[in-house]
Structure formats: structure tokens, C-alpha cells
Design a protein around this nucleic acid. Structure first.
Lengths: 238, 238
DNA sequence: CGGGTTCCCTAACAAGTGTTTGGTAGGTTA
DNA sequence: TAACCTACCAAACACTTGTTAGGGAACCCG
């Protein structure tokens, strides 16, 4: 819970000290969630900055000003969208990480969990992908940077252990591998549509199959191992 | 050359029909490129919509209005950035595609070429990644959608041929594989910094190694082939 | 010298932006 | 019935945005 976006509390632009009595407006949480859902959809489709508050209100069937009965600001809308998503995501991740799995199984579980989150929060994930870098400069969104760090530690840890135990290749740059894993998983949010041909689990399985075993068939791999030694010597020796 | 962004020609907002004599201003192309370069940098860092024309001018050491001596509009700046990037990209791609390579070699060459383009146009690639979906709704940026189609045909073609020839696995959803390939290559633009530890060719090599052969070592793959038959039967049989 | 060209500045405009204020219909409670 | 609360509207405000018009300094060319 990185932010306390209850009720109205004006981010304090100016000309208004907190000498006012507690405003007694209490918007219903269900309505909030409804509005946040449509807002997330528009943000994901148009981009945060390109989305006007009037457009969101339009989509929700009301006028721009009415949104401010439920929310402090446009900013606090993305804030709530992103933070609730990340909270749920880390709940799932922490469960995986605490299960005491082996490195390969950890990676498999993390990937599968990620695709499940995309299935449930595809709009939020898309927003996270596009705007997180830009938003995380503001102190309000510091938890984005923090989350990035936790990602890195979790993935890199599993990869390093895997290399140590011999279940992952040792000849690859582990940080490169981490970035590829991380990015490819999350960009799926840009094309994934829930209720499509593939379930999140099926996508995870295919994705893991590619990343773990490669897109080259075994026979072809073996054949190449036999015939390509010389060329490898030419390019790889310093 | 999808757009003719020469000189000034006011996109025709209003109150100005083209009854005026040919304006004789001729900004130097070199200065244009300089300005476009800094503009691209800011766009990539902040996002297109979040970037104000004043910020670009600031970075270039001049005032907002002065930019309009060189460019029609903010929009035509991204336009020129993206279109020149795509032109160069397709010059390289077409060369690869016309070389009559085998499917695996085509994929290798396309990936390598892509990372070279990222090395040269990282800002443009980052912009393309973030804004292309949003921009391509406008007719002016129709060439973005067109380019997307060409991408798909090129990659899918190579993958299909590869499956037919037995150099790529037949048990994978080829469209999924395409999306993974495409996305992972281009997201690299978000973290790649030219002059860093790895050359574009080295990154391409590592990336191809992962995608083609997987991150699991051969012995481990073989071991799993032997021991995991039952579990595969359980999950994969319909 | 004087005309022309290149490149930028000053200063403003009009449209669009997020946000606030005061009001009010309709339901619930006392 | 009266008081209250929820959820919205109507209308505006302050500010930022992209963009334009006119001018001027520096330089080149005759």
C-alpha cells in the first residue's frame, strides 16, 4: 500500500492549507473500482498523457468534474491502478519465491504466474510497461523503482542458482538473459486478449519451451554440434 | 518516403488557404538533423505526449517558437524521426531478405541487423515501441501499420520455411513464436546504451543462442528427455 | 554600400488541459 | 416531514499547450 488515496484530500496545489474540517464524502469502493477499470482501459489504449480526464468521464457516462467526487486527481487514478496491480502481483510472486523450489521450477512458476497476472490485469500491465519509466521519476511513484529492484533480485537469484546447479547454461551473460526473460514476458500484454485462443497457462508453456529448450529441434541441434566446430572457433576465440 | 516534410507548409489548421506565394525559407538539412536528434532523445525519455515543444527547444538551446522555422509542427518531428528510421531499417532488411538465405540464416541475419539498427537509432526505436500503436491510428502515420505488416510477413515467412525444412520445431505456435521474437528484439532498445559492454553483434549472438538453443544445457536437456516422459504425457495429452 | 537570406527572439493567441466550486435530484434515515 | 448523504451536473477558473506573426541581428553576395 504505497499510497493512501482515500477520499478527497487535494494534493495541495496551493491556496488551501489543511485547516478545513474533515469532508464527509464517502464514495463507494465498488463504484471506484468500476471507474478505475474503464480508466485503465483508456490509459492502456491511448497512453496516460494522451488520455484526457474528459475522455475517461465520457467512457464512464458522466462529466469530467464528476470524477473528482471519487478521485483526487488523474494522477491518483494511475497510482491506484498500478499499485493495486503490483500488490497482487507480488502476493503471487512471494508465494512462489517462498515455496523453496529449485531454480528451474522457480523460473517456470514465475513465468506462469506472470502470464496469469497479464490475464487478469492486462490494462494495468500495459500501462506499467509504457509509463513506468516516465512515472518513476516522480517521488509519488517511487514504489515502481522499488518493485523493479525486487524483480531483478528475484529473477537474477533464480538464474544464478540455476547456473550454479548446472540446470542453466553458464556461457550466457546472466544479466542479458534476465532482461530478455523479463521483457518478453511483459510485452505479451500488448497483444494478449483474454478469452483468446490460448489460456495464460498455455502461453506460459510455449514461452517456457522456447526459452528453456530453444526453437531448434534436437536432431538439428545435434547435427550442428557435429558440423559447426570450426566456425565457432573462428568467431569465439579472442 | 511516406511523408513530404519539406520546409514549412502548415498542416492547414484553419484561416489560411494555400493562396500564398511559395515561402522562400530554406533551413539547412544539417541543423534539422541536429534538432531532430535532440528531439528524439527527449521523446524517447519522456514520451511523445509528455514532451512539450518548449522542452525540446530548451534542450536545443533556443526558444519554442524558433523550432517552427525548421519544422511544421511537433507531429512532423516524430514523423520524420520514425520514417527515416524505418527507411533505413527496411533498406537493411530487404537486403537480407533478398540474399536467398536459408530460414535459420535469415532469422539470424534479421536479428543481427535489428540490433545494429537499435545501436544506431536507439531513440527512434524507443519512440517506435512506445508510440507506434497510438500514432498509427492517425492516417498520417499509416506507414507504421504498413511496416508492421511487412515485419509479420518477413518473420512468419522465415519461420514457416524453417518448420517445413525441419530446422525449427514444428510443435510450437508459430504466431506466438513470431511475437516473442519480434518483441524481445525491439524491447532491447529500452535498456541498450551504445558504447556499453556489449556490441550489437555480441548481443545478437547471445540472444540468438537463447532463442535457438534455449538456456538449458545439452546434458540437462537429455537428462530431462529421459526422466520426464510420464509427466509430459499427463499434461500434454488431450 | 544595400538587398537578401538564414536563424533565432519576443510576444502573443486560441484551444485544450486538470481541477474546483456550488448546486441538485433522488434515495435513505429519523 | 425534515435532515442527510450519495453521486452526479453545470459552469467556470487557472494554467499549459502547440502554434503564429513580426522583427532583428549576423552574414553573404553584388
Amino acid at each position: 500500500m504505497p499510497n493512501s488515496t482515500r477520499n478527497r484530500a487535494s494534493t495541495g496545489n496551493s491556496a488551501k492549507k489543511n485547516s478545513e474540517k474533515k469532508t464527509t464524502v464517502t464514495p463507494s469502493p465498488e463504484r471506484r473500482r468500476e471507474l478505475l477499470s474503464t480508466a485503465a482501459e483508456v490509459f492502456a489504449a491511448q497512453g496516460y498523457n494522451a488520455t484526457t480526464v474528459r475522455r475517461i468521464a465520457d467512457e464512464a457516462g458522466m462529466l469530467a468534474g464528476s470524477l473528482y467526487y471519487h478521485f483526487d486527481s488523474k494522477e491518483s487514478m494511475v497510482d491506484e491502478i498500478l499499485s493495486t496491480f503490483l500488490n497482487e502481483l507480488w502476493a503471487g510472486y512471494d508465494e512462489v519465491l517462498g515455496a523453496g523450489l529449485g531454480p528451474r521450477e522457480t523460473v517456470e512458476a514465475l513465468v506462469t504466474e506472470s502470464f496469469r497476472e497479464i490475464d487478469r490485469h492486462r490494462a494495468a500491465v500495459a500501462i506499467y510497461q509504457k509509463e513506468s519509466q516516465h512515472l518513476s521519476t516522480q517521488p509519488r511513484f517511487g514504489y515502481l523503482t522499488e518493485s523493479r529492484g525486487r524483480f531483478e533480485r528475484a529473477w537474477l537469484g533464480a538464474l544464478e542458482r540455476g547456473v550454479a546447479e548446472g540446470v542453466f547454461r553458464a556461457d550466457l551473460d546472466i544479466r542479458l538473459a534476465y532482461r530478455f526473460l523479463r521483457d518478453t514476458v511483459w510485452v505479451a500484454a500488448s497483444w494478449y486478449r483474454p478469452g483468446g485462443l490460448h489460456s495464460p497457462e498455455e502461453i506460459a508453456r510455449q514461452y517456457l519451451s522456447m526459452v528453456l529448450d530453444g526453437i531448434t529441434p534436437r536432431e538439428e541441434q545435434a547435427r550442428r554440434d557435429r558440423t559447426q566446430r570450426k566456425t565457432q572457433r573462428q568467431t569465439q576465440r579472442p
